[in-house]
């Protein structure tokens, strides 16, 4: 008999929750599951539309083109997603990418691929870690820290390179990163997939992942439960830095050209992908799978517009409109936007 009573009380308390959530819509920021479906729906619609517009759309060659185009932005967005889940933001990624590539590029005369690639990645990791320490240990808001770091690293890249582009031609392994392939799949695409899988494992199945969401969900409660919230935030910024350096290297290798003025405004495109992927800037939510789908949406839209010969400026307008179109229905449904 007691069991029956318990059951009844349980349904009633779930019900009170329903009432409560009706009364307080801002909680909906936390789980945009509706926009998860709308995201996937948009992706499928785009695939169908694409095939209808250009018959070669779903050809292997064009799929490679699309994936290659989103590889860099996708890899950066993995790092950004981790940062945003903790409730922080990383606006320095474009700066980190360019400074790391220049630092690595300065090693080209040594002729050692390991030195060039290693320096690039370690520089990104180190700058990211500095971001993390400034934010997590010293408590400087990430918006300010990373905005400052963006300026500093862009300026340093210009100083170190004398404003001149560097050319990685002598380093075959470096070029291979951007242009080579593994069993017919372009290497940047391989890295996009492998790192995506690793990031999914990290966020969904690791104990670090739990600490990550806890830190973003309620930093005080996480700290009082013994989570190393300083460490978690330092690590995500370091990962974001390394992702930025890698993405920068893939692009530089593809173009065989390290441009000290490159990646202008990249941080905002990456942030857009992350938000489109369902991560809330208030922290505690977001997923790598969402980010992957979001990156694909952006990649396909740009690919289609390119094929239709639409100007780059109009492309930017359309991309922004797509983001609004995907994000908004979910919000309406939850009553966030009126």
């Amino acid at each position: 008999m007691t069991e029956k009573v318990g059951e009844h009380v349980m349904t009633m308390s779930t019900l009170e929750t329903q009432v409560a959530s009706q009364a307080r819509p801002p909680d909906a920021w936390r789980h945009l599951s509706v926009s998860e479906t709308s995201r996937v729906a948009v992706l499928i619609a785009l695939l169908i539309a694409g095939q209808a517009i250009t018959p070669s759309f779903l050809s292997l060659a064009n799929i490679h083109v699309i994936l290659l185009a989103v590889a860099a932005i996708g890899i950066m967005a993995y790092g950004m997603t981790l940062v945003v889940i903790t409730g922080e933001i990383d606006l320095s990624i474009a700066g980190i990418a360019i400074l790391s590539c220049i630092a690595g590029g300065l090693m080209i005369p040594t002729g050692s691929a390991a030195l060039v690639i290693g320096t690039t990645l370690l520089t990104g990791l180190a700058i990211g870690l500095i971001n993390g320490i400034l934010v997590a240990a010293l408590g400087i808001p990430s918006l300010i820290t990373t905005l400052g770091m963006l300026g500093i690293s862009r300026a340093l890249a210009n100083i170190f390179s004398g404003g001149q582009a560097l050319y990685p031609e002598p380093i075959a392994a470096y070029l291979w990163l951007g242009r080579g392939d593994l069993v017919g799949i372009p290497l940047p695409v391989v890295l996009l997939v492998v790192l995506g899988a690793a990031a999914i494992a990290l966020t969904k199945y690791s104990i670090f992942g739990r600490a990550l969401y806890a830190t973003g969900g309620n930093v005080k409660a996480a700290a009082l439960s013994g989570i190393n919230v300083v460490g978690v935030r330092a690590v995500v910024f370091a990962i974001s830095g390394a992702c930025a350096a890698l993405a920068g290297m893939l692009e530089s290798a593809r173009l065989s050209y390290i441009n000290p003025a490159g990646f202008e405004g990249m941080e905002l495109s990456v942030l857009a992908v992350t938000v489109l992927g369902g991560a809330s800037l208030s922290g505690g939510s977001g997923s790598i799978t969402g980010t992957v789908v979001a990156a694909l949406i952006i990649g396909i839209v740009n690919n289609l517009l390119n094929q239709l010969g639409v100007s780059i400026y109009l492309q930017q307008v359309v991309t922004a409109a797509v983001i609004l179109a995907v994000v908004m229905p979910g919000m309406w449904q939850r009553g966030i936007a009126k």
């Binding site: 936390r30 789980h31 494992a201 199945y205 690791s206 104990i207 670090f208 992942g209 739990r210 600490a211 969401y213 806890a214 969900g217 309620n218 005080k220 409660a221 996480a222 009082l224 439960s225 013994g226 989570i227 505690g284 939510s285």
Partner: peptide, 27 residues
């Protein structure tokens, strides 16, 4: 201060013992 409200009941209970629940970093 006590709970991470957007996380699940299971995650909240496990919050103090994450390290013990890890094997090679996996839960």
């Amino acid at each position: 201060e006590g709970l991470i409200l957007p996380m699940s009941v299971g995650d909240n209970i496990a919050m103090t013992i994450l390290r013990r629940l890890g094997r090679l970093g996996f839960m």
